[in-house]
Simulated scan of single mutants.
Amino acid sequence: MEFPQVVVVGSLNYDLVLKQDRLPYKGETYTADDLIQGPGGKGANQAVQCAKLGLSTAMIGKVGEDRFGEALLGTLRAVGINDEGVKRQGTTGLGVVHLLPDGDYYSTLLKGANHLLTESDIDEQKNFIQNCEFLLLQQEVPDHVVEYVIDIAESSNCQIVLNNAPARSIKEDSLKKVDILVVNETEAAYMENASVDSIDEAKVAASNLLKRVQKAVILTLGEKGAIVAQGTSVIHVPAKKVTAVDATGAGDSYIGALVFSLNEGKSYEEAAIFASEISAKTVSQYGGSDSFPTHNTMV
Rank of each mutant, 00 (worst) to 15 (best):
His98Trp: 12
His98Ile: 00
Leu99Cys: 02
Leu99Ser: 06
Leu100Arg: 01
Leu100Pro: 00
Gly103Met: 09
Gly103Ile: 02
Gly103Trp: 10
Asp104Thr: 15
Asp104Gly: 14
Tyr106Trp: 03
Ser107Val: 15
Ser107Ile: 15
Thr108Ala: 15
Leu109Cys: 08
Leu109Lys: 05
Leu109Gly: 11
Leu109Ile: 15
Lys111Ala: 15
Gly112His: 01
Ala113Asp: 04
Asn114Gly: 06
Asn114Thr: 02
His115Glu: 12
Leu116Ser: 10
Leu116Glu: 11
Leu117Val: 11
Glu119His: 08
Glu119Arg: 09
Ser120Gln: 14
Asp121Val: 01
Ile122Trp: 01
Glu124Gln: 12
Gln125Thr: 01
Gln125Met: 14
Gln125Trp: 01
Asn127Trp: 06
Asn127Cys: 04
Phe128Cys: 01
Ile129Trp: 03
Ile129Pro: 01
Gln130Trp: 01
Asn131His: 14
Cys132Lys: 02
Cys132Glu: 02
Glu133Asp: 15
Phe134Met: 07
Leu135Pro: 01
Leu136Gln: 04
Leu136Ser: 05
Leu137Gly: 08
Leu137Val: 03
Leu137Pro: 02
Gln138Gly: 03
Gln138Phe: 08
Gln139Tyr: 04
Gln139Cys: 14
Gln139Glu: 08
Glu140Gln: 07
Glu140Phe: 09
Glu140Ala: 05
Val141Leu: 06
Asp143Asn: 14
His144Ser: 12
His144Val: 06
His144Arg: 12
Val145Ala: 09
Val145Asp: 08
Glu147Tyr: 09
Glu147Ser: 12
Glu147Arg: 05
Tyr148Asn: 05
Val149Met: 10
Ile150Lys: 08
Ile150Leu: 13
Asp151Asn: 13
Asp151Lys: 11
Ile152Cys: 10
Ile152Trp: 03
Glu154Ile: 01
Glu154Gly: 06
Ser155Cys: 08
Ser155Asn: 13
Ser155Gly: 11
Ser156Leu: 05
Asn157Phe: 09
Asn157Arg: 11
Asn157Val: 00
Asn157His: 11
Cys158Ile: 00
Cys158Leu: 00
Cys158Tyr: 00
Gln159Lys: 14
Gln159Glu: 09
Val161Phe: 11
Val161Pro: 05
Val161Gly: 10
Leu162Ser: 10
Leu162Gln: 11
Leu162Asn: 08
Asn163His: 01
Asn164Val: 08
Asn164Met: 10
Pro166Leu: 02
Ala167Ser: 13
Ala167Ile: 00
Ala167Glu: 12
Arg168Asn: 14
Arg168Met: 13
Ser169Asp: 14
Ile170Leu: 15
Ile170Lys: 04
Ile170Val: 15
Ile170Met: 15
Lys171Leu: 12
Lys171Asn: 12
Lys171His: 12
Lys171Thr: 00
Glu172Met: 11
Asp173Glu: 15
Ser174Ile: 02
Ser174Thr: 10
Lys176Ser: 14
Lys177Ile: 00
Lys177Tyr: 08
Val178Ser: 04
Val178Tyr: 03
Asp179Phe: 13
Asp179Gln: 10
Leu181Asn: 06
Val182Pro: 07
Val182His: 04
Val182Leu: 11
Val183Tyr: 04
Val183Ile: 07
Asn184Pro: 04
Glu185Leu: 03
Thr186Gly: 07
Thr186Ala: 12
Ala188Lys: 03
Ala188Tyr: 09
Ala189Asp: 07
Ala189Leu: 03
Tyr190Gln: 13
Met191Thr: 05
Met191Arg: 11
Glu192Gly: 10
Glu192Lys: 15
Asn193Asp: 13
